[in-house]
């Protein structure tokens, strides 16, 4: 534990004296934030369309990455393997809807939430049983070289990740706002009953949204797995995505992206500049505290609407 000097003066001196290093820290934070955004995006999609707080999203990413590595181990080329894994994720979505969501329709949100916790346990066990629990390398040939740009150290992989996230968000935005299915999804999100009554098939909507969330998880799994290996800890990024959600709002796609970036940067900057004064390893809780403080001032999140309560 440090003194006031360590907390306030030293970090500021560091920032002013080495601005380039500060920028590098921020970029590092952004690249971590993109990962959080990707996982948060999966959460948001499912919550928006079904009101289910899907705790299994992180495990979904782990499961996707494990499956991908497993399939590639059979000697199948990467693009085909990715396609096959995508197929597995869709099959999984169908199974989840059939076996879990459909029997639980009309239950309280907390019951649905608990069922996704059960799902997380199940998928974790299934992934480990099928593919083994040792740490695996995932190599899709994404370049990982570092290079310097105007004195700032950058990594190609981080650029690829950021680009992928940007593409995903664009595709999803178009999907939500420009397609028939997207409109149906938004209708379901607003009101299940009303959507049903105008003939929107709830079941297929759920399958679609879980499939999309599964594909988003696959992308997140690929990115995260390439960066730090495919292992159990990958499922823990779900825990990192949660503060992103309360920051951005459970139902906002842009919120998930911006929230992820804020958390990523905030966490890195805090760890580098304030971590030593606090004894280190603060990234485990800093994001939560940041989100909590933020929430005290804006309970509806970054992009949420003000809630008008009625009786």
């Amino acid at each position: 534990m440090g003194t006031v000097y360590d907390f306030i003066v030293l970090p500021l001196i560091d920032i002013v004296e080495y601005p380039l290093f500060f920028i590098e820290v921020v970029i590092g934070g952004l690249s971590a934030g993109v990962m959080y955004s990707l996982v948060a995006l999966g959460f948001v999609l499912i919550f928006k369309a079904s009101g289910v707080f899907n705790f299994a999203q992180g495990v979904l990413a782990l499961f996707a990455a494990l499956t991908l590595v497993g399939i590639m181990d059979w000697g199948i080329p990467a693009p085909l393997a990715i396609l096959a894994t995508a197929g597995v994720m869709v099959a999984l979505a169908i199974a989840i809807e059939r076996l879990m969501l459909r029997p639980l329709v009309n239950q309280d949100q907390i019951i649905l939430f608990m069922s996704t916790l059960g799902l997380a346990y199940f998928l974790e066990g299934l992934g480990d049983t099928l593919w083994g629990s040792n740490v695996k390398r995932l190599d899709l040939g994404i370049p990982e070289k570092s290079f310097e740009f105007q004195g700032i150290l950058l990594n190609q992989f981080e650029l690829v990740a950021a680009g992928t996230a940007a593409v995903m968000v664009t595709v999803l935005a178009v999907f939500f706002h420009r397609t028939r299915v997207g409109r149906a999804l938004r209708a379901v999100a607003d009101d299940h009953q009303a959507a049903l009554s105008v003939g929107i098939p709830l079941k297929s909507i759920w399958i679609i949204v879980w499939s999309v969330a599964g594909l988003v998880a696959l992308v997140a799994g690929i990115m995260w797995g390439t960066k730090s290996g495919v292992q159990f800890s990958l499922s823990l990024i779900a825990l990192k995505a949660l503060p992103v959600l309360i920051l951005g709002g459970f139902t906002s796609v842009p919120g998930a992206i911006v929230g992820g970036l804020i958390i990523g940067v905030g966490e890195k900057v805090a760890e580098v500049y304030w971590g030593p004064a606090l004894g280190g390893a603060i990234e485990g809780w800093f994001a939560y505290m940041l989100a909590l403080v933020f929430l005290m001032f804006r309970p509806q999140g970054l992009f949420g609407d003000v809630i008008i309560e009625r009786v």
Partner: peptide, 12 residues
């Protein structure tokens, strides 16, 4: 691992 699966399935 199997225990995890069974536990998860049982919860659901």
């Amino acid at each position: 691992h199997l225990e995890f699966m069974v536990l998860g399935a049982l919860i659901i």
